[in-house]
């Protein structure tokens, strides 16, 4: 780890003023990803601005009937919060599918959004990587790419976003509240993360001088018909090969409002409005689910060692929508797939 300066921010305004004065400083909250990346010399900030003591730890109901989650709420507290387990069990389930109990105790809600890809070449500073060093190349395309993307890739980058939480937040139409030098703004979660294009070094649309203050959930929590189905190489404590957040509003066997978000397949949580529209107003069954899966995956592209993911994703989508329809969400404990 490189040597760096350390300071504590006293409030959000102080945090913004500290980050504005040092272009190579970084905020630190839970630190679970940043400290790890510093140990690998992928990140080497001049200064860490400790925001972990800022008063952004509340979970509150909004006047609109939704939920506002402070950016510093630890992942474990969010997963077990009664309002989340009762009204947004999809979010709770996705959180519990990710990382380990220790890491969830440390990791913050805002930091989860900002975690970086686990692409092997991004982590290995002895190899080129366009995300780490723009213009240096992408060995993943022809290398060990089992965990890499099949949707929305570019010539420059085939990395995936590793979060489980963000996949559920994307399905739930969450919004990200941020503060910056020009005041506050709100970014839809589905627009928060970027596709790699020719600027894979930028993971998100957050400006480096901005800070995440909260995540807001709308009232609809899909607590009856949902699932988070995560397929991975180990039964626990592994990143997704493919994960699917499925949420349905059902009316007598007909799908009224379908949400389908995929993790482990793209540079951002992957939603496809066309696939969701194809489900709405239709009978909920394996045929309509398969059609939706085909729409999601019709432009999928494999890179050899991850090509299996296209068929895996198709089957995971159908299984997840079936679990959601039946009201039998995937247990994150027993692991038997319903």
């Amino acid at each position: 780890m490189n040597n760096f300066q350390y300071s504590r921010a006293t409030d959000v305004a102080d945090a913004l003023s500290q980050i504005a004065s040092d272009a190579s400083a970084k905020f630190i909250a839970g630190g679970t990803n940043l400290v790890d990346l510093m140990k690998y010399d992928v990140e080497h900030p001049s200064r860490l601005i400790d925001i972990s003591h800022l008063p952004l730890t509340k979970i509150e109901e909004t006047t609109a009937g939704g939920l506002r989650i402070g950016a510093l709420v630890p992942n474990s507290d969010l997963a077990w919060h009664p309002l989340v387990t009762e009204r947004y069990p999809l979010l709770s389930s996705a959180l519990l599918a990710g990382a380990s109990a220790q890491l969830r105790n440390m990791a913050s809600t805002g930091g989860n959004l900002l975690q970086r890809t686990r692409c092997l070449y991004f982590y290995d500073v002895a190899t080129p990587c366009n995300k780490r060093e723009p213009g240096s190349g992408c060995p993943a395309k022809e290398g060990i790419n089992r965990i890499n993307a099949i949707l929305g890739t570019s010539d420059a980058c085939i990395a995936t976003h590793p979060s489980d939480m963000c996949v559920a937040l994307a399905a739930l139409d969450a919004e990200v509240h941020v503060a910056g030098p020009n005041g506050e703004r709100t970014i839809a979660l589905v627009d928060f993360h970027r596709l790699p294009g020719d600027t894979p070094q930028r993971d998100t649309n957050l400006d480096p001088k901005e800070i995440i203050t909260a995540i807001e959930l709308p009232p609809q929590g899909f607590s009856k018909h949902y699932t988070y189905l995560k397929i991975r190489d180990r039964l626990s404590y592994a990143f997704a090969l493919v994960s699917v957040a499925a949420a349905l509003r059902m009316d007598n066997g007909t799908t009224r409002d379908a949400r389908l978000a995929l993790g482990g397949v793209a540079h951002k949580p992957w939603r496809n409005p066309e696939a969701e529209a194809a489900l709405n107003g239709q009978a909920a069954n394996t045929d309509t689910f398969a059609r939706a899966a085909d729409i999601v995956l019709h432009e999928a592209k494999g890179f050899g060692r991850n090509t299996f993911k296209i068929d895996l994703a198709r089957r995971t989508i159908i299984r997840a929508l079936t679990q959601a329809m039946n009201g039998t969400p995937q247990s994150q404990s027993s692991k038997k797939i319903a």
């Binding site: 630190i28 630190g31 679970t32 380990s100 220790q102 440390m106």
Partner: peptide, 23 residues
């Protein structure tokens, strides 16, 4: 030393954490 094995787990303010990833 990367938060993957749990051998460094301690309790901080009563919560289990990976001390290797804690500054």
């Amino acid at each position: 030393d990367h938060g993957q094995c749990g051998a460094c787990t301690v309790l901080v303010d009563g919560r289990r954490v990976n001390s290797c990833l804690t500054l």
